[in-house]
Simulated scan of single mutants.
Amino acid sequence: MSDRLLIAVLGNRDSGKSTTWNRLFDGTVKTGKNKRRLYLNGAQWVEVFLVSGSPEEREMYVSEILPPESLPQIVLCSTQYREDVRETFDFFFHEGYEVFVQWLNPGFDDNSSYEDNFELRDYLLKNGATLQVRNGQINEAPRVKELRQFILGWASYRNLVRTDFP
Rank of each mutant, 00 (worst) to 15 (best):
Arg86Ala: 11
Thr88Leu: 01
Pro106Tyr: 00
Tyr97Asp: 04
Val62Met: 09
Asn12Val: 06
Glu69Gln: 12
Asn139Lys: 07
His94Ser: 11
Glu59Tyr: 08
Asp90Arg: 10
Cys77Gln: 00
Leu104Tyr: 02
Thr130Ala: 11
Gly42Phe: 01
Trp103Asp: 00
Ala8Tyr: 01
Asn111Pro: 05
Asn34His: 11
Cys77Gly: 02
Gly128Pro: 15
Glu119Cys: 06
Ser78Gln: 00
Gln80Asp: 02
Pro72Gly: 10
Ile74Tyr: 03
Asn127Arg: 15
Arg148Asp: 00
Leu5Cys: 12
Leu147Ser: 01
Gly136Thr: 09
Leu131Ala: 13
Arg86Gly: 03
Ala129Ser: 15
Val161Thr: 15
Leu71Phe: 03
Met1Tyr: 01
Pro106His: 04
Phe165Thr: 15
Phe118Ala: 14
Glu95Asp: 05
Val144Asp: 10
Phe91Asp: 02
Leu66Thr: 02
Glu69Thr: 13
Val9Arg: 03
Glu119Gly: 07
Lys126Thr: 13
Glu98Leu: 08
Glu57Ala: 14
Ala129Val: 04
Leu6Trp: 03
Thr163Ala: 09
Cys77Lys: 00
Leu5Thr: 11
Tyr97Ala: 04
Phe89Thr: 02
Glu115Met: 08
Asn135Ile: 03
Arg162Thr: 01
Asp84Ser: 07
Asn105Ile: 06
Asn127Asp: 10
Pro55Trp: 01
Asn111Thr: 10
Ser156Thr: 15
Tyr39Met: 13
Phe92Asn: 06
Trp103Ile: 01
Ser18His: 04
Asp3Leu: 13
Leu38Gln: 09
Leu24Asp: 04
Leu5Val: 11
Glu56Ile: 13
Gly96Met: 04
Arg82Lys: 13
Asp26Ser: 14
Asn135Gly: 03
Pro68Gly: 12
Phe108Ala: 06
Phe93Cys: 03
Lys17Asn: 05
Ile65Thr: 07
Gln149Gly: 06
Asp14Arg: 15
Arg82Ile: 07
Leu38Asp: 11
